[in-house]
Nucleic acid binder design. Structure first.
Lengths: 347, 347
DNA sequence: GTGAAAGCGCTAACAT
DNA sequence: ATGTTAGCGCTTTCAC
């Protein structure tokens, strides 16, 4: 009765395969067979085992199974956090597809150990998890080099490593940006501001390139003062939009590299008393759920977030099945979603 | 080269404690000691082991550790999904506190096996996970009764079981609703519509009671037509608000039981050409991140979501340390957050 | 088709 | 302070 913590060490209170074997009157490897790959077990024996297991309330210990079997049914997700529509939509897709394949999900957040990414990943990948999905903006290499073996299964979401040799899912950033810009031009805009993403990210650069290409195609000269740096965050978008809106000749439209920045731009415009889309049109990128929640509802380029999650899982499972499988990159199509935040410019 | 899947069975490519022992010239239990509880290991030996481990790149296999040790450093979270500001904020808090205690997180979504909750929970709780955090609106009992032992550690978030014997975190629903209603009354409103949550949930009923109590205190009679059923979802809020707004004498304010429903109410009002808060005031509950994103920014009752996550973890860890610890319930304070969606009624 | 036995990587008595 | 020896609950040869 004295306060010892964590006593009852080996209180293996749980029912094991051995208990079931005894109850069913068979050897415990037979029980194992019944509960694993249904090899050639006699139908009678199987039924006896199943009955015994039900009677006892047996459920398999996944832990022990994967230790002994050398494989697990758990996939790890490494992401900065899930408190952001972009990632949580992808996670939704991942979860759906995982459920389908009967896998479970471990959630690992980066930032947990600044500077110790390598150790963190090593630990993650050692034992518990059969493969890893990485949604890690920046320093992807730090994580990758820590993988235990050359062919430990992993897939990158919306990100490339420098050697481009990783299995990857992403979407058509360039085309999406091109379409967005094009749409604005078709509305009659000529002075279109651009808020960049994190410039270290390939996807961010592709969006910038798409923007430029659309302008060039319409023989609109590129004005460097209309391109301001953002960081894919709302606050960054707010600041960047501020610069744009305080320009001597204000742009009539702003293309933000993602929805989060676009939300910041919305705020910045409103704060200056500008009507959206009356005085300024704003378009985003991603189409996270919040995009249709803001007012006015945001016109944006849709990334198929949930589908990205699906594909990530499917690619990972492929790799887990066959680690020698060569790296693939699948790029999903983006799509313009017209809502209420864009209109022709006022003359 | 023929397509066999999952070959190379026991490719125990990883470095184990045995390898380190050999490299360091000590027995492998010494290595175990060094990497676990630092018992009384000679400083020299320890250093030798650490060096050897570093040279080899050893990391502990958590799987094996917990099988052998009979405990794990993983906590399971069972929730409907994470694609909703309410839950993802709580998860953020959970993750932070877990990182602090050096635990990892498994994410289990309900809906995965409709009708097989019991089996699902049994499997989850068998081995892998040291304890469970449940954010499961409805049928909590179905989950609870499947727990492997009487004292398997778990905590309930914002929910009570019928016997009220579970360890629980929640916040002051009644008081919050009282405050919200009071605020509206202080602004001069007398006809205040109420959109309920899921009426099976205790928190939803407490909010309704709080609303009623505030009206009574101000001698405002309760009009049943002003109380309409919602379901904590945006669409439900939209429909409920529609009924309220189409009433012969429209309320001048609406109190929605959570922010998601409030967003629906916002839409319904806008669609009828009503200005917010000019023609109708709307107040929510929760203060999820999106609340300050909608336009006008939503006035609401703040639940300390992140802190709820922190507390959930701390309570769970307590239970894991000492499963006999008696159940506790901690209730955190809500707070009125005034933004732009409420104003005095027009005469 | 089924049982016996080894072993996955580790912890935890029990010795010494 | 360190080594020896059983297991944890399961999968997987290898016999029969």
């Amino acid at each position: 009765m004295s306060g010892q913590k964590n006593s009852r060490k080996k209180s293996s209170n749980s029912i094991t395969i051995v208990d079931v074997a005894r109850e069913a009157g068979v050897s415990y490897s037979t029980v194992s067979r019944v509960f694993s790959d249904f090899e050639f077990v006699n139908e009678d024996t199987r039924q006896k085992v199943i009955d015994a297991a039900n009677r006892l309330g047996y459920v398999v210990n996944l832990q022990a199974r994967s230790l002994a079997g050398g494989r697990s049914n758990i996939v790890g997700l490494l992401a900065p956090g899930i408190d952001n529509g972009y990632i949580s939509e992808i996670v939704k897709g991942i979860d759906q597809e995982l459920a389908f394949a009967n896998y479970d999900l471990m959630l690992y957040t980066t930032h947990r150990y600044a500077g110790r990414e390598a150790y963190y990943v090593k630990t993650i990948a050692n034992g518990l998890v059969a493969g890893l999905i990485l949604i890690v903006p920046l320093i992807t290499e730090n994580y990758l080099k820590a993988l235990p073996t050359q062919d430990f299964p992993y897939v990158l979401v919306d990100q490339t490593d420098s050697t481009r040799s990783s299995t990857t899912v992403d979407s058509t950033s360039w085309q999406g940006a091109f379409d967005a810009t094009n749409y604005l031009i078709s509305l009659g805009h000529r002075r279109i501001g651009f808020i960049t993403g994190l410039t270290q990210l390939s996807s961010a650069m592709e969006r910038l390139d798409g923007y430029r290409a659309a302008l060039e195609q319409h023989h609109i000269s590129i004005d460097q003062t209309l391109i301001v740096e953002g960081d894919y965050e709302t606050a960054g978008g707010y600041n960047a939009a501020g610069k744009l809106l305080d320009l001597p000749t204000r742009p009539t439209a702003i293309f933000a590299s993602n929805d989060l920045s676009a939300f910041g731009a919305l705020d910045a415009a409103r704060q200056r008393g500008l009507g959206i889309p009356r005085d300024i049109s704003i378009i985003g990128f991603d189409d996270i759920p919040q995009a249709s929640l803001v007012y006015p509802k945001l016109t944006t380029i849709r990334q198929p977030l949930i589908q990205i999650g699906h594909v990530a899982v499917r690619l990972l499972l492929e790799k887990i099945e066959d680690p020698d499988k060569e790296a693939r990159r699948v790029t999903l199509a983006t799509e313009l979603v017209i809502r209420d935040s864009c209109a022709p410019p006022r003359q």
